[in-house]
Amino acid sequence: YLDRVNSDREERRVSLFHVLLCAMARAQHLRPKMNRFIVGQRLYQRHKLEYSFGVKKKLDDEAILTAVKLPFEPDDTIDTVIDRIDSAISTGRAETKTQSEKEMRLVASLPRFLTRLVVWGLRVLDYFNLMPASMIAVDELYCSMFVANLGSVGLEAPFHHLYNWGTAPLFCSIGKVESTPVVDARGGIVPRELLTIRWSFDERVADGFYCARSLDLFKDFVSNPELLEKEPGEAKCARDPEKAKAISTG
């Protein structure tokens, strides 16, 4: 698919990362329970979809690793996702510090007892759902999912813990594409290029059955990326329309 769709594109080329994020967003919009979170022992439904991911300023050992957060809309297509992701990466790699970086630098400059006091105060506000919206808007850990694209630097996907700060109910680790021996339909061993994605999930926001069906929908979009070229209302569901309809509404 990538070879075909990029054959006549010199700019705004589609990458595997673009397809994966677009498929995740499309599936999560259709499965709203996967966009819930728990704060202060209460369950909340998030009304917007935002993903955060890490961006290395430079491919250098000493370069800073920052994070960016970007929204996804229900009618996003692969082209709108490309523009948004590429813009976010450019912002993350810019010399200008992000608002989150400025805040972290300020807190880190405080004496340690004041840092502990500030963090405690913020946790109290968060517990009672009183955290200022302006702080939530720039904090990358207040998101629908945190994504680590480790395959972009040639690493395998690890299992990653959920953060104990913020409201991300999902963590996604994307590994590198590897040639792997698999058993074909005839029982023979053949090489195939496989991608490993590992997920961490807060099972309090939805049960495992709901999560598994949501992953089925995500895999359906990845297996049929042409669906992501159109808005959801224009795209016919993938390999099994009845199954896809049941997954998205069940």
Rank of each mutant, 00 (worst) to 15 (best):
Q41C: 00
A148T: 15
H161V: 04
F128P: 06
P32K: 10
I64C: 04
P74H: 11
G121N: 08
D83P: 03
K102Q: 15
G121P: 05
F53L: 08
D76A: 04
L49K: 00
V68K: 07
S87H: 15
D79S: 08
L43V: 06
V138T: 09
E95G: 08
V153R: 10
L70F: 07
L70C: 05
P132H: 10
A133Y: 08
I78N: 01
A63V: 05
A108D: 10
E101L: 03
E73I: 08
A157M: 14
E140W: 03
T91H: 13
V68M: 08
P74I: 10
L162S: 00
L162K: 01
G121D: 06
G121H: 05
K102C: 07
V118S: 00
D75T: 14
L65H: 11
I89P: 11
R123T: 14
Y142N: 07
T91C: 06
S134P: 04
K97F: 12
L65T: 14
T80M: 09
R93K: 15
L155H: 05
R116D: 11
S152Y: 08
F53Y: 08
R105D: 12
G40K: 04
F146V: 08
G151S: 06
N35S: 05
K58T: 14
K33C: 11
T98L: 14
K57I: 14
L43Q: 07
V107N: 03
R116N: 10
Q99T: 11
K56A: 13
V153T: 11
L141D: 02
P74N: 13
E73F: 15
I136P: 04
L65I: 14
E103I: 13
Y51F: 15
Y51N: 07
V55E: 03
A88N: 04
R42H: 02
S109Y: 12
L125G: 05
L65P: 08
F113E: 15
L49E: 01
T66A: 05
T77W: 11
S52L: 09
Q41V: 02
H160F: 09
A133P: 09
E73T: 15
L130S: 01
V138C: 06
R84E: 06
A63L: 12
T91W: 05
F146E: 02
D79Y: 15
A108G: 03
S109R: 14
